[in-house]
Design a protein around this nucleic acid. Structure first.
Lengths: 189, 189
DNA sequence: CAATTCCTTACGAACGGTCGTCAGGCAAAG
DNA sequence: CTTTGCCTGACGACCGTTCGTAAGGAATTG
């Protein structure tokens, strides 16, 4: 469907150049249309953006839920490291993740509230997933020095730092920092 | 000097709305000039931006050097926590920090290489400062489980995560996450 | 079957606006 | 008299958006 291919192109361009840096002409050209034709499918640029936003955040959260469900019973360190590697492995190839990162960090000013609603809902959703795993780890005595809530927040911060490194760009930088941060995190649990 | 007041206004606006979101009209209006008059002081928008960029990053690095020199002999935990609090306390009020964060994360595409040069130089400079402190801590036996290089990178990652939280916005969110991340980090050193 | 109506999709043309930039002039200062 | 700082005016390019229109298919009608 044309509507979907417009959204696909918009996702990639928004991810790469941001909201203001992406014009309807670019999106239309990428889809093989003229910019006016986009208005047969979307009411406005904001409408298109918000639809892409909603679907992207929903898909991201769905992916995390799937990961946690699939590998819940793995050893804690493999489970957590796998989650981190799942991020480093995706950035660079995955436009959906780039879109999610860029929009989360710097949403278009006039849509700030609507974007942040999705952002917070996503983060809270992901944290809730990891909290369950940390609660089981505490029950099994795998983690003793930190309570599950603290562990979850610290792990959430570790994820944040990886996002930063990914955005900053360097791949071997990300790898070095991830290993060091993980070593200290794991030793501190 | 007018030139300086233009740069001051530009710093604030670039920090708040980014490169593409800031027009020369805005900058000029904030300075009490017409946009065309800016060309008496700067060759182009890029020229103005790059000058602000250079001075901001240089000033940021200078501040960090000053902090480290002033408080090098404090206990390690106070020294590190003070550095973190120095960030959380500044964001929201300090346009220079906002500019530094925003430009670092999403530089204007056509100036990507030049911006990233400053970004990497800044991060390497800051890491080198903290590395010295961790080396002393290792020599004094304050830190035994991690070597200075690993500790430095992990602390650098902790700083990254704080940057993310600051950008995300929530103040009590940042505080909760900072406390948890710090607890695990400090326990893992 | 053919003819008609309607809806969807896409397009060309044009709108008002804003952008960064350039040229020229005018007043004040050295 | 020259230089400097700021002004007005204008430029071409691009922005998001609107309008009228034309093609095509589906559905309805005779």
């Amino acid at each position: 469907m044309t509507t979907q291919s417009i959204k696909d192109a918009a996702l990639i361009l928004f991810a790469e150049h941001g909201y203001n840096g992406t014009s309807l002409s670019h999106i239309a050209a990428e889809t093989g249309l003229k910019k006016q034709s986009l208005y047969s499918h979307f009411a406005s640029k904001d409408d298109l953006f918000l639809q892409v936003l909603e679907e992207t955040f929903a898909a991201e959260l769905r992916d995390r839920e799937q990961y946690v469900n699939d590998r819940f019973s793995e050893p804690l360190d493999e489970f957590l490291l796998g989650a981190l590697r799942g991020m480093t492995g995706r950035f660079g190839h995955d436009a959906r993740m780039k879109f999610w990162l860029r929009v989360s960090f710097f949403p278009p000013a006039h849509l700030y509230d609507q974007v942040m609603e999705y952002v917070y809902r996503y983060i809270d959703g992901v944290d809730a997933l990891y909290l369950k795993r940390f609660e089981q780890a505490a029950a099994l005595g795998e983690v003793t020095r930190q309570n599950p809530e603290t562990a979850t927040l610290a792990f959430s911060a570790l994820i944040d730092s990886i996002c930063v490194e990914l955005v900053y760009g360097g791949e071997e930088r990300t790898e070095r920092k991830l290993q060091a941060a993980w070593a200290v995190f794991w030793a501190g649990l």
